[in-house]
Nucleic acid binder design. Sequence first.
DNA 1: TTCACAATTCCATAATTTGGAATAATATTA
DNA 2: TAATATTATTCCAAATTATGGAATTGTGAA
Lengths: 297, 297
Amino acid sequence: MLNRLEMLRIFCTAAESRSFKEAANRLGISPQAVTRAVKELERLQGELLFHRNTRHIQVTLVGEKFAVIAKERLRAVDELFQTSVPNSGNELQGRVRIAAPVGFGHKCLMPALLELSTIHPQLDIDLTLSDERVDVVDEKIDIGIRIGFMRDSRFIARQLTKINMYVVASPDLINRVGRPASIEDLNHLPVTGLVDCNTGKLWPWVFSMDRQWTPSITRFRSADAEAELMGVQNGLGFAQIPDFSAQDLLRQEKLVRVLEEVEPVPWDLYIYRPQRGPVPQRIRLVFDHLVSRLSVR
Amino acid sequence: MLNRLEMLRIFCTAAESRSFKEAANRLGISPQAVTRAVKELERLQGELLFHRNTRHIQVTLVGEKFAVIAKERLRAVDELFQTSVPNSGNELQGRVRIAAPVGFGHKCLMPALLELSTIHPQLDIDLTLSDERVDVVDEKIDIGIRIGFMRDSRFIARQLTKINMYVVASPDLINRVGRPASIEDLNHLPVTGLVDCNTGKLWPWVFSMDRQWTPSITRFRSADAEAELMGVQNGLGFAQIPDFSAQDLLRQEKLVRVLEEVEPVPWDLYIYRPQRGPVPQRIRLVFDHLVSRLSVR
DNA sequence: TTCACAATTCCATAATTTGGAATAATATTA
DNA sequence: TAATATTATTCCAAATTATGGAATTGTGAA
């Protein structure tokens, strides 16, 4: 008999996804496994939980109600396996190598890792922050975090959240030079730029309908996102910043969003690790901890 | 990785048992499976949940607290798979053949089956009540209930409860002839007897330290336990009766226990079904229902 | 000191799970 | 309208996990 807990987990994830394939990706399993789990659950419940065809899925009313209860109880059981602090067994000793984008690392990842280190002092976290494309296998990384696409079946990937890209500037700057009304206006306004370490060129800004705009003349540019952000805060120019970097400053009204109507579709943030095999407990522990902490947004 | 839900179930059952072997019997699994589940749970929790050696087990304090929470959450998840009344799918249509001892059938099994029929009107219960040894496979029985021993690996067996055997008589009879002070005294007192259908002879009475006593001269004898019980109630003689038959009459002081100090160790009551394989849903449903209703004592 | 019994470990076998490949269905695009 | 791309589903061979018998070890009772 299928693992009932996993069945519920799969069902709940599918209920929050636009397709079984998406649910499968989020869980790091195959689409067939999703189909099987949902079918078996429907058989046990004696009810259809999804209306579906090859083009889209729709939770039934029964399925929605069931999902609410199931998610809660699933969480309650999962807690039984997470709340306790394990003994310092050998399995939790050892290094965990993590790679993540710089900005995300500073803003979101470090708090989660500090929390983890408090709980598990014996873990040895080896964190590589880089905006370069890091290969998990070749660089001997245990866990990676990446923005964009995960079309590589070598990895178990889970989507953590969505990353929005905002165009922002300081209020002072906007008072001085006005707000851009279109993407083209950026050509005549001071902007900062983030340098792509791989190419030495500036990252293009992305907009809705796959439009792109690359700064040519910048007031400030750097490969260091932190430095760019400082420049933006100090009125050096407009910049396109991921929401996790900008949101606190936006909340404090130290930065202002512009060109909101042409914002691009959000990018996916993934956490991934090498293809399954015997995974050390400490890797799994860190992976699961990061999934749970970084998904809450 | 082990099935976490089953791990919890095994742990909770072990926490309520005097040995891992007993827990294994109750769950219809092997003792190795219990050992494995508990060890894995201890590894995940990083705590010892049992102090144990080959002679006895003791839940730790941590284990006790964990068991309380785990049991509740396990029940909540199990409910997800039980509360709904499934559609009248083909799988719940059909006959379920059950065999049980006569007395137990009348007293305990029928109420549970009536309840089940109310919930699932489409079930077709085929109940065979007999004190003969019924072979589940040969007689095409889906579910059997048996008192005594289940040393047959052909079956999935679960212990339901313990059956005590009481020597009882009516108060009137005791007033007339006195109480027996020893097993030997029974030779000089009126007794009733239950006839073994298989052999035509009287069932022996069983006592502590594996002592047995077989009535020779009886005031009344029958293969029908109900008739024997009526005889006992009406003062025809002493009888050895299982507790499920006697307990109501004892409570109402219509019968009185004697020779309590030589009562045998309780016998196990088992529910069993043929060895696992594809088991129809309705069989499983009835089996699980009976397990849950008949274990409560 | 011996014995009986149960927890645990090991290992071969059985059962289950898995994902690639194939098939069928469906919305989108040309 | 036909072709294409994508996804749900099914099938099947391979991989992985679960299982219980046998053996070992430990422990309380006789």
